[in-house]
Amino acid sequence: MRIEFELDARTITVEIAPGETLMTLLRRIGAVSVKDGCSRGDCGSCAVRLDGRAVTSCLLFAAQADGRRVQTAAGLADATGGLHPLQRALVDAGGVQCGYCTPGVLMAAMDLLESDPDPGEQEVRTALAGNLCRCTGYVKIIEGVRDAAALLREAEHD
Protein backbone atom coordinates (compact mmCIF):
# COMPACT_ATOMS: atom_id res chain seq x y z
CA MET A 1 0.00 0.00 0.00
CA ARG A 2 1.01 3.61 -0.48
CA ILE A 3 1.09 6.08 2.40
CA GLU A 4 1.86 9.74 2.67
CA PHE A 5 3.12 11.42 5.80
CA GLU A 6 5.15 14.38 6.96
CA LEU A 7 8.67 13.51 8.04
CA ASP A 8 10.63 16.35 9.62
CA ALA A 9 8.73 18.91 7.52
CA ARG A 10 9.10 16.97 4.28
CA THR A 11 6.24 15.14 2.62
CA ILE A 12 7.02 11.49 2.07
CA THR A 13 5.04 9.28 -0.26
CA VAL A 14 6.12 5.70 -0.08
CA GLU A 15 5.02 2.17 -0.87
CA ILE A 16 4.90 -0.01 2.24
CA ALA A 17 3.95 -3.51 3.27
CA PRO A 18 0.92 -3.22 5.58
CA GLY A 19 2.67 -5.31 8.25
CA GLU A 20 5.86 -3.25 8.24
CA THR A 21 6.72 -1.29 11.38
CA LEU A 22 7.27 2.42 11.33
CA MET A 23 10.82 1.93 12.58
CA THR A 24 11.68 -0.39 9.71
CA LEU A 25 10.15 1.98 7.22
CA LEU A 26 11.98 5.02 8.57
CA ARG A 27 15.35 3.29 8.56
CA ARG A 28 14.64 1.88 5.10
CA ILE A 29 14.07 5.36 3.66
CA GLY A 30 17.21 6.71 5.29
CA ALA A 31 15.86 8.22 8.49
CA VAL A 32 18.54 6.32 10.40
CA SER A 33 18.67 8.61 13.40
CA VAL A 34 15.89 6.24 14.45
CA LYS A 35 17.79 3.37 16.07
CA ASP A 36 16.83 -0.27 16.50
CA GLY A 37 17.90 -1.35 19.98
CA CYS A 38 15.43 -4.11 20.76
CA SER A 39 12.49 -4.14 18.29
CA ARG A 40 10.16 -4.68 21.26
CA GLY A 41 9.43 -1.24 22.63
CA ASP A 42 11.63 -1.77 25.66
CA CYS A 43 14.61 0.50 25.00
CA GLY A 44 13.27 3.71 23.43
CA SER A 45 16.10 4.09 20.88
CA CYS A 46 13.55 4.18 18.06
CA ALA A 47 11.42 6.92 19.63
CA VAL A 48 9.91 9.44 17.23
CA ARG A 49 7.19 11.99 17.71
CA LEU A 50 3.91 11.15 16.06
CA ASP A 51 1.62 14.19 15.88
CA GLY A 52 3.74 15.70 18.63
CA ARG A 53 3.75 12.72 20.98
CA ALA A 54 6.88 10.62 21.58
CA VAL A 55 6.24 6.97 20.82
CA THR A 56 8.27 3.85 20.07
CA SER A 57 8.29 3.50 16.30
CA CYS A 58 9.08 -0.21 16.53
CA LEU A 59 5.65 -0.82 18.07
CA LEU A 60 3.71 1.05 15.41
CA PHE A 61 2.71 -0.15 12.01
CA ALA A 62 4.02 2.15 9.32
CA ALA A 63 0.45 2.35 8.05
CA GLN A 64 -0.54 4.14 11.24
CA ALA A 65 1.61 7.10 10.19
CA ASP A 66 -0.46 7.67 7.04
CA GLY A 67 -1.62 11.28 6.96
CA ARG A 68 0.22 12.12 10.14
CA ARG A 69 3.29 14.08 11.21
CA VAL A 70 6.50 12.26 12.20
CA GLN A 71 9.43 14.04 13.79
CA THR A 72 12.88 12.53 14.39
CA ALA A 73 16.02 13.74 16.08
CA ALA A 74 17.49 14.51 12.66
CA GLY A 75 14.87 17.23 12.24
CA LEU A 76 15.74 19.11 15.42
CA ALA A 77 18.60 21.21 14.12
CA ASP A 78 17.63 24.30 12.11
CA ALA A 79 17.93 24.54 8.34
CA THR A 80 21.50 25.82 8.52
CA GLY A 81 22.57 23.02 10.80
CA GLY A 82 22.46 25.08 13.99
CA LEU A 83 21.90 22.80 16.95
CA HIS A 84 18.63 23.00 18.86
CA PRO A 85 19.24 24.18 22.45
CA LEU A 86 18.32 20.69 23.64
CA GLN A 87 20.97 19.11 21.42
CA ARG A 88 23.56 21.63 22.57
CA ALA A 89 22.73 21.25 26.23
CA LEU A 90 22.74 17.45 26.10
CA VAL A 91 26.20 17.28 24.52
CA ASP A 92 27.68 19.98 26.70
CA ALA A 93 26.36 18.44 29.90
CA GLY A 94 28.06 15.14 29.01
CA GLY A 95 24.73 13.46 28.36
CA VAL A 96 26.00 11.85 25.16
CA GLN A 97 28.49 9.03 25.41
CA CYS A 98 28.06 6.41 22.69
CA GLY A 99 25.10 8.34 21.34
CA TYR A 100 23.01 5.36 20.32
CA CYS A 101 20.16 6.15 22.72
CA THR A 102 20.50 9.88 22.11
CA PRO A 103 17.99 10.37 19.27
CA GLY A 104 15.30 8.63 21.31
CA VAL A 105 16.18 10.59 24.41
CA LEU A 106 15.89 13.82 22.42
CA MET A 107 12.38 12.91 21.29
CA ALA A 108 11.15 12.05 24.78
CA ALA A 109 12.78 15.18 26.17
CA MET A 110 11.13 17.38 23.52
CA ASP A 111 7.77 16.01 24.63
CA LEU A 112 8.52 17.05 28.16
CA LEU A 113 9.92 20.49 27.36
CA GLU A 114 6.95 21.42 25.24
CA SER A 115 4.56 20.73 28.09
CA ASP A 116 6.75 21.75 31.03
CA PRO A 117 9.18 24.65 30.55
CA ASP A 118 10.80 24.17 33.95
CA PRO A 119 10.83 20.48 34.81
CA GLY A 120 12.29 19.33 38.10
CA GLU A 121 14.62 16.38 38.33
CA GLN A 122 11.78 13.97 39.04
CA GLU A 123 9.78 15.18 36.05
CA VAL A 124 12.77 14.57 33.78
CA ARG A 125 13.26 11.11 35.23
CA THR A 126 9.62 10.25 34.62
CA ALA A 127 9.70 11.62 31.08
CA LEU A 128 12.79 9.59 30.15
CA ALA A 129 11.90 6.34 31.92
CA GLY A 130 11.34 4.56 28.61
CA ASN A 131 14.74 5.46 27.18
CA LEU A 132 17.42 3.03 28.26
CA CYS A 133 20.98 4.28 28.36
CA ARG A 134 23.80 1.95 29.35
CA CYS A 135 26.64 4.49 29.21
CA THR A 136 25.86 7.58 31.24
CA GLY A 137 24.03 6.45 34.34
CA TYR A 138 21.52 9.17 33.35
CA VAL A 139 23.01 11.82 35.66
CA LYS A 140 24.24 14.04 32.87
CA ILE A 141 21.28 13.33 30.61
CA ILE A 142 18.97 14.64 33.30
CA GLU A 143 21.26 17.62 33.83
CA GLY A 144 21.34 18.29 30.10
CA VAL A 145 17.56 18.29 29.74
CA ARG A 146 17.21 20.71 32.63
CA ASP A 147 19.94 22.92 31.15
CA ALA A 148 18.03 22.87 27.88
CA ALA A 149 14.87 23.97 29.66
CA ALA A 150 16.79 26.93 31.07
CA LEU A 151 18.19 27.79 27.63
CA LEU A 152 14.73 27.64 26.09
CA ARG A 153 13.27 29.82 28.85
CA GLU A 154 16.01 32.39 28.26
CA ALA A 155 15.33 32.35 24.54
CA GLU A 156 11.65 32.91 25.31
CA HIS A 157 12.48 36.00 27.35
CA ASP A 158 14.83 37.51 24.77
Binding site: G44, R53, A54, V55, T56, L59, A108, D111, A129
Partner: peptide
Protein backbone atom coordinates in the same frame (compact mmCIF):
# COMPACT_ATOMS: atom_id res chain seq x y z
CA UNK B 1 1.98 2.82 34.34
CA UNK B 2 4.76 2.10 31.85
CA UNK B 3 6.92 4.80 30.38
CA UNK B 4 5.75 8.00 28.75
CA UNK B 5 6.54 6.44 25.38
CA UNK B 6 4.09 3.64 26.11
CA UNK B 7 1.49 5.86 27.72
CA UNK B 8 1.45 8.03 24.63
CA UNK B 9 0.70 5.02 22.51
Amino acid sequence: FGSVLHRNQ
